[in-house]
Every structure is written in C-alpha cells, then in structure tokens.
C-alpha cells in the first residue's frame, strides 16, 4: 500500500512540478478552440435542442483534453524514464504489477480531471453549461481518462524512441479524439460516417460526458457507459499483461 502510494505521489509530483505545461497549457488550448469555433459558427442552429453551439462545445472539448492529457501523462512518464534509464528504480522494487498500473493510471486520471476542471471554470464565465447528472460526469471522466491512461502505459512500454510515441499520439490518439463528435453531433453526419464513427470508442466517452451536462445525447448514456467501461477494462487488461510479462521492460 505504501509502495503504491509512493509511486502515485511521485507521478503526481512529476506533472505538478511542471504545472504550466501539464495543466495550464491544455486549458488554454481548449479555450482557444472554444473562441475560434464559437466565432466561426456563431448564429448556427442549435445542434442539440435547446443547447447553444458554444455550450455544446464545452463538454466535448473537456473530454477531448482529458483523453489527450491522460494519454500524454502515463506515456511520456514511461518513455522518459525508460530512455533516461531511471525506470530501473521502479523495476528493482517489489511493487506489484497492479500497484505499478494503478499508480500510472491514477496520476493520469488526476491530471485529466484537473485539466477538465480548469476548462470548465473558465468556460462558465462566458457561457452557461448546466450540470444535470454529476454522477455520469464523474463516471465518464474516470473511466474515459482511465482508459487513455492505460493506453498511455501500453504506448509508453511499446515505444522505444520518442518518435515512435509521437507516431502513436499523432496517428491514433489525435485522430480518434478529433473524430469523436467534439465539434458536431453524430446526427449531423451522413449515414456512412455515422456507422464508422460508432466504431470509435472515444465517441461514447464524449457523448456520455455531454449527457452528464445537458441530459441529452445521441446514444443512450447507459449503453455509452457500458461501452466505455468495457473499453477501459480491455485496455487495462492488455496493459497489465504487458507489465506482468515485463514486455520491453525486463528483456
């Protein structure tokens, strides 16, 4: 227990010591999106009934930032310490596979939640975003960023160089997070794209998260939650198996 707490605390410190880059920067980025897109699409008809476009954007941007930051946190921590070599201090310790996993995912979730909170706090100065179902918000927030934190562990372990990790980020995480209905509703897409979008697990994170705010969504929130939890479980199982086997960690 002390072992897990120490690693978790160390991972928190790691991003806390560079708060500007790990929390503030993503908040500013999300707000820039908000400003640009709300300016561009001003006067457009509401996407969800009774929800203005700017308000509609806020949850999606929050979840997108959570997704990207949760992934970035665990993956960059792992690859940095792998390349610097200081990962051995963790590998030499008696920490269990589960403690290792939980500490990295836990820190990723905390960072993601802080970024989301930051975006929300600034956004509500300009636009009203109600919170209808806080429990859903929390569940989608935790399982969504947990899944991406676990995916970050997989990518961090698999990558042997920084450019491999950047590839993973640019060709997997970024496209999936952008094409997950942050800027539009599923209903506004042509049927083919609707079907394709439904294969993207990140879509359910954003749709369900949005439900938590407005109480309206494209997909039933319980179905979305089930899909997100199943996705999180599958990614976690893969990450745990990799850590347990020592894949690319203990060659």
């Amino acid at each position: 227990m002390i072992g897990f707490r120490t690693l978790f605390y160390k991972e928190l410190l790691r991003f806390y010591k560079v708060l500007l880059q790990t929390i503030l920067a993503p908040v500013v980025t999300a707000l820039l999106y908000l400003v640009v897109f709300s300016g561009t699409f001003k006067g457009r008809p509401d996407i969800l009934p009774g929800v203005g476009y700017v308000a509609f954007l806020v949850p999606g941007l929050m979840m997108m930032s959570m997704i990207q930051n949760a992934f970035a946190n665990s993956s960059s921590s792992l690859i940095q310490s792998k390349i610097a070599g200081n990962l051995i201090f963790i590998l030499l310790s008696p920490l269990s596979t589960f403690e290792f996993f939980l500490a990295f995912v836990g820190a990723a979730i905390v960072r993601a939640l802080l970024v989301a909170l930051g975006i929300y706090v600034v956004a509500i100065v300009f636009v009203t975003v109600p919170i209808r179902h806080p429990l859903y918000l929390l569940l989608f927030g935790i399982f969504g960023s947990g899944a991406l934190g676990a995916l970050g562990i997989i990518a961090g372990i698999w990558s042997e160089r920084f450019d491999q990790l950047a590839g993973f980020q640019n060709f997997v995480v970024m496209p999936l997070s952008f094409l997950s209905g942050v800027f539009y509703s599923l209903r506004s897409l042509p049927p083919v794209w609707q079907t394709l979008s439904k294969l993207n697990p990140l879509l359910y994170m954003i749709d369900g998260f949005r439900y938590g705010f407005f109480g309206i969504s494209d997909v039933s929130p319980l179905l979305s939650l089930a899909i997100v939890i199943a996705f999180c479980a599958a990614i976690s199982a893969t990450a745990l198996a990799m850590v347990a086997r020592g894949y690319r960690l203990r060659n």
């Binding site: 002390i2 120490t6 160390k10 010591k17 963790i90 310790s93 008696p94």
Partner: peptide
C-alpha cells in the same frame, strides 16, 4: 525531477 533526499525517500517508499 528530484533532490537527493526526495529520491531516497521515494525509493524507500517503493519498498513499503
């Protein structure tokens, strides 16, 4: 990221 004392405290923590 850490000072010598922090490093040693963290390392001891990993060992519970």
């Amino acid at each position: 990221f850490f000072s010598v004392r922090e490093i040693l405290r963290i390392q001891a923590g990993y060992f519970g």
